[in-house]
């Protein structure tokens, strides 16, 4: 009961924040026309039919993977399964060995024998069971949302959280990647004509949001910090101000990380092959932050970096 309340509370907070301000930051992974942004193996197994992504195979067919790798994100999609539909969403995986490197969020029609909570729709298949069993009705569209937030993975079906996992406490997930491709499993069934269908596939890449990246600078786990550092360098100018603020703050972990990453951003900006826009934007952001910071240590450091970029 306690768990149930907690999950509901979490779900409420989660969806309140998601749906009020975050819709804009979702971008489509599937254009309804073709498989651009995706890679499909030689055996096929997926096709686009009437704006929907359709998978049906009997004996052969490959899984479908995004071209890009993602670390922290919210993935939204709609799916429909046939009576013996059996598919899944692979997350944080290397397509070379997806089940070993990543995990599968299961999508499974409730055919007999009835699968347990560790292997039903919404579970992190074989690793983390669902806490709330979702509606498994076949032949209708369901909404799914998967949130990969550093060491927390949550899954919801039809706007209700089914699974909430702190993966650093799951023994079987110790060696899993923290970043990887997103995959859709080819529908596999022993009966012909069974299928899984997908539509409205959207992703919000948390690692492109300064506020989210900033949170990573305070993480205890050095791997997660490094991940945030890389994301900050990639983002460049937009991170300069939050970094300058962290550098002037009290938290020694965030202080030293932000100082180092500010240098790395300037190092990247000054590379001969670097894009002129990245460099110019960083230079402007440095000047703005140097003018606005109240910390003398930070200002001196930023001015030194300005000298480096403007030289």
């Amino acid at each position: 009961m306690k768990e149930f309340i907690l999950i509901n509370l979490f779900a409420t907070l989660f969806f309140t924040s998601c749906f009020t301000q975050e819709n804009d930051s979702f971008s489509p992974l599937f254009n309804g026309k073709d498989l651009s942004k995706w890679t499909l193996g030689e055996e096929g197994g997926f096709e686009v039919i009437k704006g929907e992504l359709y998978t049906s195979s009997f004996g052969k067919g490959n899984n479908l993977f995004t071209n890009n790798w993602y670390c922290n994100y919210v993935l939204r999609l709609e799916y429909m399964l046939s009576d013996v539909g059996n598919s899944g969403v692979l997350i944080r995986c290397d397509p070379q060995d997806p089940w070993k490197t990543g995990v599968e969020v299961q999508l499974l029609a409730p055919w007999t024998p009835r699968r347990d909570d560790l292997h039903c729709t919404g579970s992190l298949y074989g690793h983390v069971a669902v806490a709330n069993r979702p509606d498994e009705t076949t032949g209708i569209w369901h909404k799914m949302e998967i949130r990969c937030d550093r060491n927390t993975i949550s899954v919801s079906v039809d706007d209700t959280i089914t699974t909430l996992a702190s993966i650093d406490t799951v023994k079987t997930m110790e060696d899993k990647l923290l970043c990887g491709a997103i995959g859709l499993q080819v529908n596999h069934a022993n009966i012909e004509g069974q299928y899984a269908k997908f539509r409205n596939i959207y992703i919000r890449d948390l690692d492109s949001e300064p506020e989210y990246i900033t949170g990573g600078f305070y993480e205890k786990d050095s791997l997660l910090r490094s991940q945030a550092h890389v994301a900050a360098i990639t983002l460049g100018a937009k991170m300069v101000e939050p970094l300058a603020i962290m550098m002037s703050g009290e938290n020694p972990v965030a202080k030293s990380g932000s100082r180092q990453v500010l240098f790395d951003i300037v190092a990247r900006a000054t590379a001969p092959q670097s894009a002129e826009k990245y460099k110019n934007d960083v230079a402007i952001a440095l000047k703005n932050s140097a003018n606005s910071t109240s910390s003398e240590i930070t200002r001196n450091y930023l001015e030194w970096l300005i000298g480096m970029i403007g030289n």
Partner: peptide, 14 residues
Amino acid sequence: EGDNAANYLLSRGV
């Protein structure tokens, strides 16, 4: 050669 930032780091600067 061709790297002003690298040359900048040849000195302490400030």
